[in-house]
């Protein structure tokens, strides 16, 4: 590992921002969010943004193609982006997203384009924030290798290590005097204590009736905000918009919490109640994605419990489900 001053890091970011879009944690006056910013104002403290950086590799809406009767043109226009300051929970979430979009039966070309164009600079957390429970998911709050460059905050300086060729190239753009070569050698630590998790062998249907979903989720107001700000929620729908005699097809975030998510054309809704929908959210995270990819799709970032207006706590719900599943 090598040390570089935060000021030097800002210079590097400014340099990278000449040819790429820079996004990072920013203070909007009320809350910290992830957004386009500049090298001078990007936050370099330990605060966590209320929403995850996922919109920069899985945008809230993204044009996929434009088509007419005669031809279809795929949208390959992806802005190269530097994602600065992603926390280990966000990076682990990216690992899950990558498994979902790239490692299944189909590889998603749009996600792939974002991933190959993006430069991801992670930063380890100094301490747990209220609501964080990454440790209870077996993750290391200080480190994840699912990024191009990993930083460790030591006050005025960062300890720097690169984890990819892309990261190494980016670091080569540092001002002469601060050049660092610092390939990563460490691995994530496994925290002590029990890990929240369900065995991928569980027959999902057994959890439909044996868990008291209505009681566990009675206070949920069905807003779906938790799914928007979550780093691993990845459900989407398509929307066609007519424009200039052609059709533009968009992919837009959707949410299992919304009643329209599963509403059939007949009017029947297989997930009729909020409890049914929240069950989907929890089991998708802790069971279905695990069955499909081997990873649980919750990294304990704590965002949903911090921001839920009525304090619905997915950790408590997951633990209650574990009890029943035992």
């Amino acid at each position: 590992m090598a040390d570089i001053k935060k000021e030097t890091m800002r210079k590097l970011l400014a340099k990278l921002a000449e040819s790429m879009t820079l996004v990072g944690p920013s203070d909007n006056g009320k809350v910290v969010e992830y957004k386009k910013t500049d090298a001078d104002s990007v936050l370099m403290d330990d605060r966590i943004s209320y929403k995850s950086p996922k919109e920069f590799y899985f945008p809230q809406t993204e044009k996929l193609l434009t088509f007419s009767r005669d031809e279809a043109v795929e949208n390959t226009d992806v802005p190269p982006t530097v994602i600065f300051g992603a926390k280990p929970c966000d990076l682990e979430a990216l690992r899950v997203m990558n498994a979902v979009f790239m490692e299944g039966r189909y590889a998603d070309p749009f996600f792939d384009r974002h991933m190959s164009q993006n430069l991801i600079i992670g930063v380890g957390c100094l301490k747990k924030k209220p609501g964080c429970f990454c440790d209870e998911l077996g993750l290391d709050m200080e480190f994840s290798d699912f990024c191009d460059i990993m930083l460790t905050d030591t006050g005025d300086t960062y300890k720097v290590e690169h984890l990819s060729e892309k990261g190494e190239k980016a670091l080569a753009q540092l001002p002469e005097t601060a050049k660092v070569t610092c390939a990563n050698k460490r691995t994530a630590k496994k925290p002590d204590g029990d890990v929240i998790g369900l065995s991928a062998d569980i027959e999902d249907i057994t959890l439909f009736d044996s868990v008291n979903w209505s009681d566990l989720t009675a206070t949920c107001q069905g807003c779906g905000m938790c799914t928007y700000i979550c780093p691993t929620c990845h459900c989407f729908e398509f929307k066609d918009v007519s424009k200039d005699g052609c059709v533009e097809r968009y992919r837009c975030w959707d949410s299992c919490i919304y009643p329209k998510f599963t509403l059939h054309a007949s009017g029947h809704n297989p997930r009729a109640s909020r409890a049914d929908r929240y069950r989907q959210r929890v089991l998708h995270k802790y069971l279905y994605v695990k069955k499909n990819t081997g990873h649980a799709a919750c990294t304990g970032c704590g965002r949903c419990l911090r921001s839920c207006p009525v304090g619905v706590n997915i950790k408590t719900v997951a633990k209650a489900v574990m009890e029943v599943a035992k």
Binding site: Q60, T61, Q221, G222, C223, G224, M225, Y228, I229, E237, K239, V241, Y250, C252, Y258, K260, P309, V310
Partner: peptide, 30 residues
């Protein structure tokens, strides 16, 4: 995200105007 709507006691409409298919009030793009 419509969290403000869901938190409001007064937004109890079974189908909010934003969720209607016809007319297309909500272009599904933020």
């Amino acid at each position: 995200c419509f969290s403000c709507r869901q938190a409001c006691y007064g937004c109890y409409c079974q189908t909010c105007f934003m969720d209607r298919g016809v007319p297309d009030w909500h272009p599904e793009s933020p």
